[in-house]
């Protein structure tokens, strides 16, 4: 699923590496929290996985794609096997909830019939039935994030990657979103969640990978985030 080995990555114009001989593997069906202080390299890992940045050395394999060697025009094929969720939702403001989700299906060339069947199903799964015609600004933050999750899910990716998906939400909404991600994981999708929120991580008994200065500092299943701090 995800295989990083001895990965080094330094952004141009900066001296310190954002990933420093970093290794980690994520197997199919896992639910993994990726934690660490600000600047420890969490977002960088996600960018390495989605092909937004390239490692200077090491191995980066995602869903069978070799990200060290992948050609730029093959990136869309990789990204279609991923569902990515961000802190700031990244919805298209002038499209309705339905269109925002359907959009991802248009990208892969899905037919109208398939879209009309699949989108309502996914919207129901994330608890947004009845909101199809609304625009993003007519939704609460939690609801907007559900739209983003629906969009990430709609093409049945094998891996969902979420970068601080609850960063803009209150604790109750955050818990709901995490429960939703866990539900998606229970349905068979691998989930990788980056987060800052200790309570939230500790409320679930999952694998927790802690980063420090671009390296894996700890990697424990059923781990407890923050015990070493």
């Amino acid at each position: 699923m995800v295989h990083l080995k001895d990965v080094c990555m330094t952004y141009p114009k900066t001296g310190t590496p954002a990933a420093d001989h970093l290794s980690l593997d994520i197997g199919e069906g896992e639910f993994v929290f990726l934690v660490g202080s600000s600047g420890s390299g969490k977002t960088t890992i996600i960018k390495l996985l989605t092909g937004e940045v390239r490692a200077q050395s090491g191995e980066v394999m995602v869903n069978g794609f070799d990200l060290r060697k992948i050609k730029r025009r093959k990136l869309p094929a990789l990204r279609r096997t991923l569902g990515v969720i961000f802190q700031d939702f990244r919805l298209i403001d002038n499209k309705t909830v339905f269109e925002n989700v359907a959009f991802a299906m248009h990208v892969i060339g899905a037919g109208r019939r398939a879209i009309r069947e699949r989108v309502p199903y996914v919207l129901k799964l994330v608890g947004l039935e009845g909101r199809e015609k609304r625009l993003p600004q007519e939704l609460s933050g939690g609801e907007q994030q559900r739209v983003a999750i629906a969009r990430a899910l709609v093409n049945s990716p094998s891996l969902i990657i979420a970068d601080e998906p609850t960063g803009n939400l209150d604790p109750a909404r955050s818990l709901e979103i995490m429960l939703l991600l866990q539900k998606i994981n229970d349905l068979g999708t691998t989930v990788l969640v980056v987060t800052h929120e200790k309570e939230l991580v500790n409320a679930f008994s999952k694998r927790v990978i802690t980063l420090e200065n671009g390296c894996v500092a700890s990697d424990e299943t059923g781990g407890y985030y923050g015990h070493e701090a």
Binding site: L82, F103, V107, N155
Partner: peptide
């Protein structure tokens, strides 16, 4: 810019 970023994130090719 953002819209284009979103398109790419969901795997849209350049032609799309």
């Amino acid at each position: 810019r953002e819209e284009i970023g979103i398109m790419k994130m969901v795997g849209a090719g350049n032609a799309f």
